[in-house]
Simulated scan of single mutants.
Amino acid sequence: MEGGDPPRRAAVNEVTPSSHPISILPPLPPVDERRRALGERLFGDPRLSGDGSRSCATCHDLRTNGATSRQRDVGLDGVELPLNTATVFNATLSFRLGWEGRARGLEVQTETLLRNPAIMGADIQVVLQRLSADPGLVAEFRDVYRRRLDKAALLDALATFQRSLVTPRSRFDRWLGGAAEAITPEEHEGYLLFRSIGCSACHQGVNIGGNLFQQHGIFHALAAPEPRVLRVPSLRNVAATAPYFHDGSAATLEDAVRGMGLAQLNLVMEQAQVASIVAFLRTLTGSYRGNPVTAPQ
């Protein structure tokens, strides 16, 4: 429905319902620490790729934003991938995985990425043979899973580790929890604007997104036309995950906010309003292992 009525100007309405559309990140559910540790070891192991040249951590840097800073990462064939790499942080909180939401769980998504010829290019049986040649790893799997290393155990270990990759303690979570000083009045105004113009219709819940599908470019074109329907991304740590959109075409958070307002809400946002929402979005940065999530340098 591109075209139609001219874009309207964004306006702030002081909306203060009794409940917030965004939920505090819950405590990490208990995980088997030995399985998590095995998964962490494998996450950085290049033996999981077809040619041994990369690991999961190659495109999902846990020292920074859980992804990369590239518009699109490069595949095994040297060609740019069609979609921007999404952060692995808080992925476990999304109802579907991947930009198109094709995977319903971390095990399925992990196997899909391992087999993808452009991403990891792995033959699972070959990977298992490689890993099975490592006596220490075989013994560790047998101790943890009470059986030999197999595909199910491999995927379970990797998925268990990824379930631990949540980033609590954002300033906004602390504010929701009652710490009034955790955000500034200006950031609070940005939150009110974020709600009043309709951003929270899609970006809400515990993952501030990640729980529904949406068509992009409703009023005006936004980024690459395909795929047209996407899983709404989480906004947790969004200040650290530039560039934005499924094709990585928005270089800055300001560009992304302005573009989303026009494309999805038919709003022309003034610079002060863009800055206000960006200020709020910067309060959504959490911590991993006690350190704030940061953008790659």
Rank of each mutant, 00 (worst) to 15 (best):
T112S: 13
A275N: 07
P233D: 12
L83E: 06
R9H: 08
D123M: 01
I24Y: 03
L25D: 05
L193V: 00
L212Y: 09
Q162A: 13
W175T: 12
W99G: 07
S132M: 09
G52C: 08
Q71A: 15
S55W: 02
D5G: 09
R258P: 00
V12A: 10
T85N: 05
Q125D: 15
L114I: 06
L212A: 15
R130A: 09
S132R: 15
S23I: 07
G248L: 03
F219E: 12
S69E: 07
P168G: 08
A182Q: 11
D32P: 10
D247K: 11
V15Q: 12
L128H: 10
S164F: 01
D143P: 03
V15C: 10
G178W: 06
P27K: 00
R171E: 14
G178R: 06
L62R: 05
R47M: 11
G190D: 05
V278D: 12
I119E: 15
R130I: 10
G136I: 01
T294R: 13
G209D: 09
R104N: 09
A153I: 03
S200G: 07
T64L: 00
Q109D: 09
P185N: 01
F194Y: 12
R236E: 11
P243M: 02
N90P: 14
P292K: 07
A263N: 10
E189T: 03
V31Q: 15
P7L: 00
E186R: 12
V12S: 10
D77H: 12
R47N: 06
R258G: 02
G261I: 00
A221E: 13
D77G: 14
V229F: 08
A201Y: 08
V15R: 14
S49R: 13
